[in-house]
Design a protein around this nucleic acid. Structure first.
Lengths: 196, 196
DNA sequence: CCTCTAATGCAAATACTTTGCGTTAGAGGG
DNA sequence: CCCTCTAACGCAAAGTATTTGCATTAGAGG
């Protein structure tokens, strides 16, 4: 009982957060990003703008929080029976979510908070998914790289394309990356890099 | 003679742009980011706010333009006599520029424009540097990967860490990535990915 | 049921952004 | 060298967005 979670979930504070997040999602799906202002969000959520400014600080932080909710995985990666299959299934779903203009905008929103905190949380959650895929593969006796290698050489290149280009990103792109990595999995120095 | 460059360089328009960029750099190096507002930049540059709004649209686009100026390479990569040496020298300089909190903020600024145009320009310029390093290595008879492979497996992982974590990024990180790639350079499928 | 705190609503004050219009710098032609 | 023409600028007014002080309320804990 530390009181760490603030007001109990289901209380007013949680209702306001849910209403505001929902309002952001609704406005994002409807109009252009020009109409996505704090007063507009507040009106849609049935709260006053000052509530949003006090809780989130600015629009960037709010959009970042909403993006985190949408980008963090909501379930365990599916088990297809092989490492390659698990990776392909996972990547297919993630590319489907993020490769659109809307998905790319979400990714930029995630980074639009003053601190890199949300981006780090998102990356950690995704790495945890790779950890599960790797653990299952290892249990099967497959020889697979670490989740760090997957983040570096599969996920990072995909995200880089999404953020730094307008090229289409699809499963062909992902397959190319997998093909480069898989034959040379777990090289001698594939241990996680220093965290210093 | 297309008139493409607008008023001649050195004209009023160019002076205003230089003054505004300089004002942004000055304010960035001095105070916190909270004081980095359009009116403050305008005052420092000796122009009116409306000039900035008309030319750049909003603060995000202006910061993105300034970040592009700072992040795009300003000279050809140095020639150390070997591919590995060239890469190490290049990465040492780039990490020195970007691994600080300030450098990470520049990277986020670059992405803060509505369109991904500046980020794409920056990525293209960096890829061109890798092209030079690769071309020189090939001329020496070294067996080296393509610049696309370098972007995917060296640069993208570094940028991913800078954007999505607060972990330190240093030459040890870069060496680890180089070690993973170099022994397995130019695998059979290392051709550039589809651009469709 | 009472009390106590943090979050909210409201409204005033402040700051930022947009816009209309007159002015100016500087390119191009005579 | 002077004239004209256009794009960019300065200024000021109007329109939004953001901040802040204070009263109120929801809801946790006793």
């Amino acid at each position: 009982m530390t009181g760490r979670c603030g007001p109990r979930p289901g209380g007013r504070s949680a209702r306001v957060q849910a209403a505001v997040h929902e309002a952001v999602r609704a406005l994002q799906s409807e109009g252009s990003r020009l109409e996505l202002t704090v007063p507009a969000i507040a009106a849609r959520a049935g709260v006053t703008p000052s509530t949003i400014y006090r809780r989130w600080g600015d629009l960037g932080q709010l959009l970042s929080d909403v993006a985190l909710d949408r980008l963090r995985p909501d379930s365990a990666p599916s088990d297809t029976g092989s490492f390659r299959g698990d990776m392909e299934a996972w990547l297919a779903q993630y590319i489907d979510d993020m490769a659109s203009d809307f998905g790319r905008a979400l990714l930029r929103d995630l980074l639009s908070s003053p601190t890199a905190l949300n981006a780090g949380t998102c990356a950690d959650a995704l790495k945890a998914q790779f950890d599960q895929i790797c653990a299952r593969a290892e249990a099967r006796g497959e020889d697979v790289p670490t989740s760090t290698v997957l983040m570096d050489h599969i996920f990072a290149p995909l995200v880089f394309r999404l953020l730094f280009s307008t090229d289409s990103v699809d499963m062909t792109t992902a397959e190319t990356l997998l093909n480069r990595l898989y034959p040379v999995a777990t090289p001698s120095d594939a241990a996680p890099p220093p965290r210093g």
